[in-house]
């Protein structure tokens, strides 16, 4: 019997290997090997022809004295500070309102979700038009209140905020649905018991709903932070290349793209991506450490 068990275990290992083989081959090439390669490239002068000469720490030395890198880093942090709280607060609000509604809730949920199924390029097209300096709807509406037109997409002082608005608008959709599900998974009896005890809506929301929702909120904050750290699409799609505005709104990922695939300084671009990777890793670890302070798992 013991022998048969042993045999079964051994064959099970072989069966597992067979089932895992496609994944392991793919991960080996496209993640493991690619990751090692990426680290290696960051120490080389890899350009457009795939010839890489080892240059040691040169890329990193250059990085730390590159004002454009520092600006992209600073901008990325600004995007995070602006967009993450906005997305979390607004999607929680939307989800809470949806959860309080019995009829029509499905209709509103569908409408609010639309940006999540629209491709970024189409979102870029429609917001560029709204933000148009001369003919755009937003400046026309502001004009009715006597506000001077704003160069949303070409003023270097403004572009970052315009991109943030679109980013929040686009990211809200998915997070609202995730938080709504979190709210619906909270058993109604807790809130009903509090209502019977005479608690008001605000007390219930702050003292009962939010703590019970905290695991979902933690997930939403983590995912949104990672997403916003990687902001690229709307910068690329809405701002004109090689203008002052795009330089002043550039994120780390945009700078990575610009170096690696526009300037063909792949080695240098890869070094930028390594810094981004380390920052996201650090921020995620910090978030996981601090979650103990505010996330309640039942």
């Amino acid at each position: 019997m013991a022998h048969r068990n042993f045999m079964r275990k051994r064959t099970e290992g072989m069966v597992a290997l067979a089932f895992l083989l496609p994944l392991l081959v793919g991960l080996g090439i496209f993640y493991f090997y690619a990751f090692i390669k990426n680290i290696y490239y960051s120490f080389t002068d890899l350009g457009s022809f795939g010839k890489a000469t080892f240059t040691g720490l040169e890329n990193y030395r250059r990085l730390f004295s590159d004002p454009k890198f520092y600006r992209s880093l600073g901008n990325t942090l600004r995007y995070v500070v602006i967009a993450v709280p906005a997305v979390v607060v607004l999607s929680t609000l939307n989800a809470y309102l949806l959860s309080r509604l019995r009829s029509l809730s499905g209709l509103f949920r569908t409408l609010l979700f639309l940006p999540a199924v629209t491709m970024p390029a189409a979102i870029g097209i429609l917001w560029r038009w709204l933000f148009n300096y001369k003919f755009g709807l937003i400046n026309a509406l502001l004009g009715k209140f006597g506000i001077e037109p704003i160069a949303w997409l070409s003023d270097p002082e403004v572009a970052l905020y315009s991109v943030s608005i679109v980013l929040v608008w686009a990211l809200l959709a998915t997070q609202t649905v995730i938080i709504l599900t979190g709210l619906q998974n909270i058993p109604a009896m807790y809130e009903e018991a509090a209502l019977i005890d005479g608690a008001n809506r605000r007390q219930i929301f702050l003292k009962i709903t939010l703590p019970l929702l905290s695991p979902t909120l933690f997930f939403v904050i983590t995912i949104t932070t990672i997403n916003v750290f990687q902001v690229f699409d709307f910068i690329f799609l809405m701002l004109r290349p090689a203008t002052l505005a795009i330089q002043y709104a550039s994120s780390l990922v945009y700078y990575f793209y610009d170096r690696a695939f526009i300037a063909y300084e792949k080695g240098y671009g890869v070094a930028v991506s390594m810094i981004l990777f380390l920052i996201i890793l650090l921020v995620t670890v910090i978030q996981f450490i601090f979650q103990k302070k505010w996330v309640h798992y039942s």
Partner: peptide, 8 residues
Amino acid sequence: PGQIFLVP
């Protein structure tokens, strides 16, 4: 972040 893998 996926960008890490783009150049490789």
